[in-house]
């Protein structure tokens, strides 16, 4: 018993120690966010000499007269719409690829994978030309509408892998009871896929929250900026960068991400009770 407890303690100690090493850069950033701008690069100490909240105050004022609060709202809007869009559209495609039978299924699946292999930068210009012809530039449409059409193959593939693991025998009973393809999707596939759908939601949130290249290309007016775009505005190679404000706002921008992760990991790891369906 003693030995077991000691081993447990040792395990906790190791997890914490290693965890601290992992997040050392973040601790450094947190400390830098309370330092004065001049001190950030001139001292190596983790403790600020004169802790100050100025970085947070200055940073929150935002960019070009638009406060950071607005950027948070914009980022939330994009992230939430993207989550809904991805969950709907990708789960439909994944259901078709994993559980339904139709001609050219494998070919279409291969095409779907190939679309993931073309580097983003060469797609960007043709895409931009198309979106500018239909007048969508400087709106959120180029960032959101494609997601309603399952353009994120990563999630389709992820859901396919997960749905293939749902036992076919399990689906046979309702089928015999006369449930149609759609009812099986809604009442069995979707609930059983909750852990995977939560993964899709978390990743979509994080990735759209952090994405900068396409947001930078499509959004120009500061009132439409997102958090990740606004953060980039603090650093400028030719002028005076506001490092303190950058670190302060970077810390704040991690809060929603961390919050989402902590709340949703329950569903992710612990799943939901599926006993009733399994019976």
């Amino acid at each position: 018993m003693r030995v077991k407890q000691r081993r447990k303690l040792l395990m906790h100690f190791l997890i914490i120690l290693f965890g601290l090493i992992m997040i050392y850069p973040l601790i450094w950033m947190l400390s830098a966010s309370f330092k004065e701008d001049v001190e950030i690069f001139q001292s190596t100490s983790l403790l600020p000499k004169n802790p100050t909240l100025n970085n947070y105050i200055y940073g929150w004022k935002g960019v070009s007269g638009v406060s950071f609060g607005k950027f948070f709202i914009n980022s939330f809007f994009i992230a939430i719409v993207s989550i809904i869009a991805n969950i709907l559209s990708c789960s439909m495609a994944a259901y078709a690829f994993s559980k339904l039978e139709f001609k050219f299924k494998n070919t279409l699946f291969a095409i779907m994978l190939v679309t993931l292999m073309l580097p983003f930068h060469v797609r960007l210009i043709p895409q931009y030309i198309v979106f500018s012809k239909i007048g969508w530039v400087n709106t959120y449409l180029p960032l959101l509408v494609p997601k309603f059409f399952a353009t994120e193959g990563f999630f389709i593939f992820l859901l396919v892998q997960f749905m293939r693991g749902i036992s076919n025998e399990l689906l046979e009973a309702p089928r015999i009871d006369g449930a149609g393809t759609f009812r099986i999707y809604m009442q069995f596939i979707m609930p059983l896929s909750v852990p995977a759908l939560v993964t899709v939601a978390i990743f979509t949130f994080i990735w759209t929250w952090n994405d900068f290249f396409s947001q930078m290309i499509y959004l120009s007016a500061p009132p439409t900026f997102t958090v990740s775009l606004a953060l980039r505005m603090f650093v400028d190679a030719t002028g005076e960068s506001s490092w303190g404000a950058l670190f302060a706002m970077s810390c704040l921008s991690l809060v929603p991400l961390l919050f989402i992760f902590i709340v949703f990991q329950r569903y992710l790891v612990e799943g939901i009770m599926l006993g009733s369906i399994k019976g």
Binding site: S132, G135, W136, V137, N138, T139, L141, T224
Partner: peptide, 9 residues
């Protein structure tokens, strides 16, 4: 979003 004031042609 399309109705936003910053759309350009």
């Amino acid at each position: 979003c399309g109705g936003g004031d910053t759309a350009t042609e």
